[in-house]
Nucleic acid binder design. Structure first.
Lengths: 330, 330
DNA sequence: CTGTTAGCGCTTTCAA
DNA sequence: TTGAAAGCGCTAACAG
């Protein structure tokens, strides 16, 4: 494979001149430049980006780390990140943290392959993140909190969102409200549960006995846990799920058992994923700003890169979205 | 930021020894290794991956190039790619070709930053791809054809899929079948249109006058074009859309005008995206294998990397999926 | 305007 | 088992 050396030789100039020409520097005369570009084309020269980044010690690239490239992640959030990143003339790459500490994500987090990272994954140890972040390598974490000088956290008020959703159900007359979630919850799901519990407690309702938590936070598990609840006989009047994926699995389970949603049981999710408005009945859920969080995350990366002082912690409010999966008890 | 040099100095060994220790080579004694690792930890040493890749001239990373990181792209397909890539011990990164020849994708396609690329985007010139592909840099393109020695194409039989779908509608008694698609179609959409036209032609039906093509292949445009068709007064009995996104937009338009799907008009999409089974009515569409294509793409990259001879062109069959958006005319 | 040269940080012979 | 040294391909002073 041709290198800049070959190009220089073929063009009959020095390496540095070739480099200048290839980078379109005004230092080199039009004639020489043409000669060099021609040589490059002739040799099908391809610059080695690694070498150039190494020399420049800058990559102009930001990494977006997600749990799984094969989704589901929030398109809107990614759009926010993307828009800001591109407008700054930086490149964006996405990689997955599947595999935890042995994943691709770690490679990008700890090996100076990018200039900053936005982490949208919970399976990367806070310690890893703390050790990676530096003034020259800012990292922004979404939906979790990491305490370190060079990492900033962007969260959503999960407790409040859940509290409001539960409050809404109670206002509608619901008294038996179950909560279905996964196991091994991180901060996010912990807060959601807290909000639910607080709302019930404040109304003198029993929360403890209505919790169902195990397995993953996915559709399948929502389905399974719901089947379990159904099998136990006494149905609550409403079920809150830890997220929309689980809720959608839950609706499928109810449907299968010919239990009407919302006629016999109301369902609410959390996240407001795209699917939420398409499932039948359309899912009532808790909306969290997505584009805004993504855009902010990227903004912060650049502010930190420029050495500005920024808040270390941000929290976005949530909003209850009322659709068809909830009904008032009269 | 500490480099390997600093680590070596602090540990009182040479750079090469430090390198060996850091790479866990058996060449270095346990005692020295411990000393070095301790020094590294103490300095919070982070390897420079660029330098190491440059030296090794290998990145063990594959790039997946998509049109837009903010989707919609096929999670299943990505999963296929991901599974194979990881099982080979390679890393996978995703980047977007938004911006065409000035995009991040180009950086990864032409600057030796990765060992191979899988292209799932149509806005990158075939020439760019041809110039990048080499024995040491295989590229696999999906849903398009690029003729070059080191790029292999994986396609889906779009013509056949569309032909079958149209045939099915005809079998069900439909005689007035419109086709709604976007503008500036690449090979993919061209073939889909061809299949539709062939089916109609073979049955002596008029296709030409029932085409509606302009704008993008997205939901919004499907909605707009459908409104247009409705406004023209005479409704066809069935509408085939170039893809599911457009079909979903179309269903929304019909719903808005209180035109029953499938009572008054049958609707068929193409792709079988996840949403297809969730919209109401559930969308009849043409399924194309996703996971398999992704997995094959990744497999081929590795075979090429190993210098094996492989077919330069693959074509997957499609399958009509019958759901609720189509009805028989009796 | 062009060339010489010193590295960027790392790996890997080769010698000791 | 360890160290010295060459060099991956490129950029950017600096000198001419």
């Amino acid at each position: 494979m041709a290198t800049i050396k070959d190009v220089a030789k073929l063009a009959g100039v020095s390496i540095s001149t070739a480099s200048y020409a290839l980078n379109n520097s005004p230092k080199v005369s039009g004639k020489t430049k043409k000669k060099i570009l021609e040589a490059a084309r002739h040799l099908n020269y391809q610059k080695n980006g690694l070498a150039s980044d190494l020399k420049r010690s800058s990559t102009r690239t930001i990494a977006l780390i997600v749990t799984d490239l094969a989704g589901p992640f929030y398109a809107e959030l990614v759009k926010g990140v993307q828009d800001v990143t591109l407008s700054k003339g930086y490149d964006l790459l996405a990689c997955s943290s599947a595999g935890g500490e042995a994943s691709t994500a770690i490679k990008f987090l700890t090996e100076k392959r990018v200039d900053g990272a936005i982490v949208l994954a919970h399976n990367i140890a806070a310690e890893t993140i703390e050790l990676s972040a530096r003034p020259a390598f800012p990292v922004v974490v979404l939906d979790r909190k990491v305490d370190s000088d060079h990492v900033v956290s962007i969260e959503v008020d999960n407790e409040q969102g859940s509290y409001q959703a539960a409050g809404r159900l109670i206002d509608l007359g619901h008294r038996e409200i179950a909560y279905i979630g996964g196991r091994a919850m991180g901060e996010v799901h912990g807060k959601r549960l807290d909000g639910y519990a607080r709302a019930l407690r404040e109304h003198g309702l029993d929360a403890e006995r209505r919790l169902h938590q195990s397995g993953h936070f996915d559709r399948d598990n929502g389905y399974r846990l719901t089947k379990m609840v159904i099998a136990q006989g006494h149905l609550p009047t409403a079920v809150m799920y830890a997220n929309d994926e689980m809720a959608i699995g839950g609706i499928a389970a109810f449907k299968e058992q010919r239990i009407g949603v919302p006629e016999q049981v109301s369902v609410v999710g959390f996240d407001d994923i795209e699917l939420a408005q398409y499932v039948r009945p359309a899912l009532s859920t808790v909306l969290q700003p997505k584009y805004e969080r993504g855009a902010l995350a990227a903004h912060l990366i650049f502010q930190l890169l420029e050495g500005q002082e920024v808040e270390r912690h941000y929290q976005f409010p949530t909003q209850f979205v009322s659709r068809d999966s909830v009904r008032a008890l009269t």
